[in-house]
Computed example of a mutant assay.
Amino acid sequence: MPKLFPVHVRDDFLDLVCSGASVSEAARRVGASRGTGKKWWAESGQMTLSISAHGGLADPAPSVEVSCGRALSEAERGMIQMGRQAGMSYAKIGAAIGRDKSVIWREVNRNCDAEGRYNAKVAHTRAHQARRRPKPFKLIEDEDLCRLIAVWMDDGWSPKLISSMLAFYFAGDQTMQVSHETIYQALYVQTRGSLRKDLAENLSLKRKQRIPHTADRLKSSPYKEAFKISERPAEVQDRAVPGHWEGDLIIGSDGTAIGTLVERSTRFTILLHLPGDHTAETVAAAMIREMANLPEHLRRSITWDRGTELAGYAKIQTALETTLYFCDPHSPWQRGTNENTNRLLRFWFEKGSDLSAHTPEDLNRIAAKLNRRPRPTLNLDTPANRLNQLLQAA
């Protein structure tokens, strides 16, 4: 009958191997046979061992750890192991180490052995070995996979869709699965794969190179120091306090544009005349000109999207003594009042029309028409009447 060992003995054995001891040496030090040690090691995930007289781990994790930000540290994995042994939930373990419970769930499911045991040293070593570079590139020599990807791209399929369908059709064959990032690398990086170079022309955006969605891209952003929409005070959201505006541009043909500003509580609209262009300097000058005569309590804040036309926001804030907040990228719904107003304004400013044909007087006349229109959201009152009430109260 094989000898039974407490769970902590097996954990001590795994810790020794992950610290550099050979399987035989670690088994001897915990009082187990070499065969038992081999069995424990195989069940733990069979990480790469060194082929040498020493026979320890081929690529152990460094003893001095540098924080990797998103990556779990060895200490955090130790807390996960102790939490598991104590019967704590994923949520409680996550709260203890400052991580979301989904991170703990993925970590445990990725690194548990066949019997559901989690060992921090083993998990940390496996993560370290998985990060080793360089990794073999999948689309270098796999002609069958490259040929299938090319067929689908010729039919207009995106790399994301191709990756999803490969996972669907070849669920049991990892050699026929590839991420959409790998396909993009093969298309955009020279010598990174065997896909036809002209396949990049089948992508919907027709770009010659990839635009990085990383922190490097944000280094030159004019909004990296700006206030985010999440930092707006609660009074803006519930419309209880007037003086908070939303803004955007209506774009016409040949780059012509008109600026729009809408007050959230009254729906009062101001139109900005932008002759010739809609550069940051032009838009800033128009906003300062049109809003400067408003009383201070009616220009508490302005919310805009991250278009380059408002890169001069610091100048606007100083001149109007207001605060500008910027929406999250690709989130126009966060300026819902302005989006709805722009939809109404398209009655006068049709898509594809030359917006430079409208004079400042034209814009004032159209804004007055819209501000005198009864609004169901105002109990059939008009934006002009609501704003006049605020001005009289002031």
Score class of each variant (00 low, 15 high):
Arg207Asp: 08
Ile251Trp: 02
Thr269Val: 12
Gln237Leu: 08
Ile250Glu: 03
Ala200Tyr: 07
Leu218Arg: 13
Arg267Lys: 15
Val189Trp: 14
Lys208Met: 08
Ser194Asn: 15
Ser230Leu: 05
Leu274Arg: 09
His213Met: 10
Asp254Phe: 05
Arg192Met: 14
Phe227Cys: 05
Arg207Gln: 14
Tyr223Met: 07
Ile251Leu: 12
Phe227Gly: 00
Asp277Val: 08
Ala215Gly: 05
Thr260Glu: 01
His278Ile: 04
Ile270Gln: 01
Leu298Val: 10
Gly276Tyr: 09
Glu290Asn: 02
Gly276Leu: 05
Leu261Tyr: 01
Val241Arg: 14
Pro212Ser: 10
Gly247Ser: 03
Lys208Asn: 11
Thr214Tyr: 01
Pro222Asn: 11
Lys228Pro: 00
Lys224Gly: 01
Ile211Thr: 12
Asp238His: 13
Arg289Gln: 07
Ala240Leu: 09
Gly255Met: 07
Leu271Glu: 03
Thr282Ser: 14
Ala257Glu: 01
Glu246Ser: 04
Leu294Pro: 03
Gln237Trp: 02
Arg207His: 14
Ile250Ser: 02
Tyr188Gly: 13
Leu218Ile: 02
Glu231Pro: 05
Gly259Arg: 03
Leu261Arg: 00
Phe268Pro: 03
Arg217Met: 09
Ser204Pro: 12
Asn202Leu: 10
Ala285Gln: 12
Gln209Phe: 13
Asp277Glu: 13
Ala280Glu: 09
Glu231Trp: 03
Pro275Tyr: 06
Ala240Lys: 11
Arg207Trp: 13
His297Gln: 09
Val283Asp: 04
Arg210Thr: 07
Ala200Trp: 08
Ile211Arg: 14
Arg232Asp: 05
His244Trp: 08
Tyr188Phe: 15
Pro242Met: 06
Asn293Glu: 03
Leu218Thr: 04
Ala280Cys: 08
Ile270Trp: 03
Asp248Val: 07
Asn293Pro: 02
Gln190Ala: 14
Pro275Trp: 06
Glu246Met: 04
Phe227Gln: 11
Gly247His: 02
Ile211His: 12
Ser253Lys: 15
Ile270Met: 05
Glu225Leu: 13
Glu263Phe: 06
Arg207Asn: 14
Ala234Met: 05
Thr260Ala: 05
Leu271Ile: 09
Ala285Cys: 05
Tyr223Cys: 02
Gln237Tyr: 01
Pro233Met: 03
Leu199Tyr: 10
Arg217Val: 04
Ile258Asn: 02
Glu201Ile: 02
Glu290Met: 00
Thr279Tyr: 02
Thr266Lys: 11
Thr269Pro: 06
Ala200Pro: 03
Asp198Thr: 13
Thr191Ala: 10
Pro212Asn: 08
Arg210Gln: 14
Leu261Val: 11
Arg210Lys: 13
His273Trp: 07
Glu290Pro: 00
Ala280Pro: 07
Glu246Pro: 04
Glu296Ile: 02
Gln209Pro: 01
Ala285Gly: 10
Ala286Arg: 00
Leu261Ile: 01
Ser221Phe: 10
Arg289Ser: 08
Glu263Val: 03
Ala226Trp: 11
Ile288Arg: 00
Glu235Asn: 08
Asn202Lys: 15
Glu235Val: 13
Gln209Tyr: 14
Leu274Pro: 08
Thr260Tyr: 01
Leu205Tyr: 12
Pro222Lys: 09
Ala200Gln: 13
His213Arg: 15
Leu274Ile: 05
Leu218Asn: 11
Arg196Phe: 07
Ala257Asp: 04
Thr282Arg: 15
Gly193Glu: 15
Asp277Ser: 15
Ala284Thr: 12
Ala226Leu: 09
Asp198Glu: 15
Ser221Glu: 09
Gly259Leu: 04
Val262Pro: 10
Ser230Pro: 01
Phe227Asp: 02
Leu294Ile: 03
Ala284Ile: 06
Ile288Asp: 00
